[in-house]
Amino acid sequence: MLRYLARRAANALVLALAATCLGYVLASVALDPLVRFRGNNPPVPDEQIRHALAITGTDPNTPLASRLWSWLSGLAHGSLGTSVDNRPVTSEIAERAGTSLQLLVLGTVLGVGLGVLVGVVGAVRQHRWFDRVTTQGSFVVLATPTFVVAVLLMVGATRLNEAAGRQVIRFTGQYTPGHEGWAAVTDRASHLVLPTLALVIGLVAAFSRYQRAAMLDVLGTDLVRGARAMGHTQRSALVRHGVRVAMVPMSTLAVYTAGMVLAGATITELAFSWHGMGEYLLLAAQRGDVNAAAGTVACTAVLVLVLGMVADVLYAWLDPRVRL
């Protein structure tokens, strides 16, 4: 099992490096570092532009390969370069990553856990009301973009607050300035409710469908027949033997799922105007900030791969066949 995980980790490391390079190259090609100097009146002096480009290492006259190389050597020393507003990208990302991770971890754990649970119950009670409601509900949720869910939740919260006559749920930003101690904690928690909900709803819909479908696949196999032949009832055969077996194929989609979850979290965070990684990338794209964009992409890639690794560990734990 350790060998398996070590191999996966090595694979992930190579992929992370490649994704980082790809991110930098794409950012360099797609973003125009001169964009913020254009249209100024009076025009920015050439000297100043050159100076600014030299600081960020994004002079278009330098060959892309050598720009990439110097950026990578910076990365080797733990620096992601300087952003256009002269701040180190590394510290900016470190700040924002905390914000993003908070939502990501909470949302993923809740979303996947609840999703699997709903899927199991739905499969066990196939065609009963619970199954029908969750199946059709998840269909609609999956057809609804995350930001629409977010807006709907905000509208709902506004109505709730109006009805209650006070701020029951707060949802703009991450926290209300001025709170201290315990009040600050509850304030932050209150701000977390809606974004988490927005993320979790989508994940529950997706994962309950996976789990339900996988369970129903197992239902048709000899595995359940075998369990029933031992003396299990249909339901206990499905629960005792089906759940774990059904989770195996799901965990093989790890990296893909991780990317999906991360994108969902990013969109949620943007919709609630949190100052997270998504916003940073969006800003970077608007300001032609190559280093910030490349840095964000690199961190994202690492995050996706880490999530993928977590899923791999789960997979190895679930299925003895990979523990060789």
């Binding site: 000899d222 075998g226 033997h241 195996v248 299925d319 003895p320």
Partner: peptide, 12 residues
């Protein structure tokens, strides 16, 4: 006793 024990016995 089934024809294909591999598919009947829980692999996990």
């Amino acid at each position: 006793v089934f024809q294909d024990p591999l598919s009947v016995l829980n692999p996990l």
